[in-house]
Write a protein that binds this DNA or RNA. Structure first.
Length: 296
DNA sequence: TCCGTCACGGTTGAT
DNA sequence: CAATCAACCGTGACG
């Protein structure tokens, strides 16, 4: 069912839906990291998934999924949503194209294409089309002199996180998940979490979790689930604030763009429990498609 | 009653 | 610049 809580008709996500357990969620969007974290923590305390489900008012399917993922990958974080993997324009290909272009600025796209094939950079299956190469030349290599590389253009380009950051980046993906295999060619072992700029915008979580693990009791002992709080148009997750006031000092829901982000680094949970024990390495198993780029 | 799984309707972001 | 597409999401229902 998931009663919809549209308050008036605001197009913004200043609403949520209520599941059968009375929990608030936003369809299509991940649960806040704070909730994910609590699911894992409660599970680690030996609380059964069904109880976690009831306590946090998250569907048991979701609890199951999050716990399963955590057990498998060590991450509480959701996967990378959206986007599509570069099918042919992998960083390696871009790099080669760039090299060709540097060596011969007058080179044609079709010549580049031939060379990619000839040099074994691509085979006939992943050979970029001429138009793709043109686009690469235009978009990614357009300014050879100042950009060192595709990667750097991707990563160093956002020095101060702009409010227009893509949503996905609010999550700190301490894993190739976010960078998921081919997306961002983050070398293994990286811990270049965008974590410091994570989550400010949306999820009300983790602000008050200054240091690592919050003591679980802070919410475990909460008066278990007062009657569902009628949500206000503020944050779809404010229902949680009732039981876990510690979590909800954060910003309320903001429209995904243009909102003034008050940035203090806050995504500590990612670094604390986002991974069991491990800090920055060993993430190979993380994603079913941690593919291809590894071969680069 | 618990829990794993999956269809569904949804969002997101690269191409 | 809009559309497309494939990734992911949590819910809810089934077994």
């Amino acid at each position: 069912m998931a009663v919809s809580l549209y308050v008036s008709m605001t197009p913004e996500p200043a609403f949520g839906e209520v599941n059968q357990l009375g929990g608030v969620f936003v369809n299509g969007r991940p649960l806040p990291n704070a909730i994910r974290l609590r699911i894992v923590e409660l599970a680690q305390l030996g609380i059964r998934p069904c109880d976690i489900s009831r306590q946090l008012r998250v569907s048991h399917g979701c609890v199951s999924k999050i716990l399963a993922r955590y057990n498998e990958t060590g991450s509480i974080l959701p996967g990378a949503i959206g986007g599509s993997k570069p099918r042919v324009t992998t960083p390696s290909v871009v790099k080669h194209i760039r090299t060709y272009k540097q060596r011969d600025p007058g080179i044609f796209a079709w010549e580049i294409r031939d060379r990619l094939l000839a040099d074994g950079v691509c085979d006939k299956f992943n050979l970029p089309s001429v138009s793709s190469i043109s686009r690469i030349l235009r978009n990614k290599i357009g300014n050879l002199s100042q950009q060192s590389q595709y990667e750097s253009s991707k990563q160093s380009s956002h020095q101060p996180p702009q409010p227009t950051l893509p949503y996905n980046h609010i999550y700190s993906y301490p894993t190739p998940i976010g960078a998921s295999g081919t997306k961002v060619p983050t070398p293994p072992g990286m811990h270049s979490l965008p974590g410091h700029m994570a989550m400010h915008r949306i999820w009300p979580s983790s602000h008050s979790m200054q240091s690592g693990l919050p003591t679980v009791n802070s919410y475990v002992t909460a008066p278990s689930i007062p009657a569902y709080h009628p949500p206000t148009p503020v944050s779809p997750y404010m229902g949680y604030s009732a039981t876990t006031s510690a979590y909800v000092t954060g910003p309320t829901w903001q429209p995904p763009s243009g909102s003034a982000l008050s940035h203090h680094s806050c995504d500590n949970i990612a670094s604390s429990l986002a991974f069991k024990g491990m800090t920055a390495h060993h993430r190979d198993t993380l994603h079913p498609h941690t593919v291809s780029a590894s071969a680069l």
